[in-house]
Amino acid sequence: MKKIELKVTLLEPVLDTQGEALTRAVHSLGHTEVDNIEVGKVLNFTIDETDEAKIEETVKSLSEKLFTNVNIETYTYRVLEEK
């Protein structure tokens, strides 16, 4: 059993309105050193599999079929821990 943390964010040409609004709010708090906030989604799940190649295959397949819209979104994931 492995735990997966998958992050979904918008691709470059798609306007990240939440990120832009947050960036402006942070600047208005005086933190002008903070910039380029991106807002995405996090999906956590477990997978009953230990073979790395199989995990990659399953996570990729589900990400491209369901978890993201590859036209406007991209994703990264990491295997968090062994249980």
């Binding site: 798609v14 306007l15 609004a21 819209n69 036209n71």
Partner: peptide
Amino acid sequence: LTEIGLLPGSLAQNKNV
């Protein structure tokens, strides 16, 4: 229809949010 690939492209959030 765009999600299942019967039509090309995608719908994203309105530009004015």
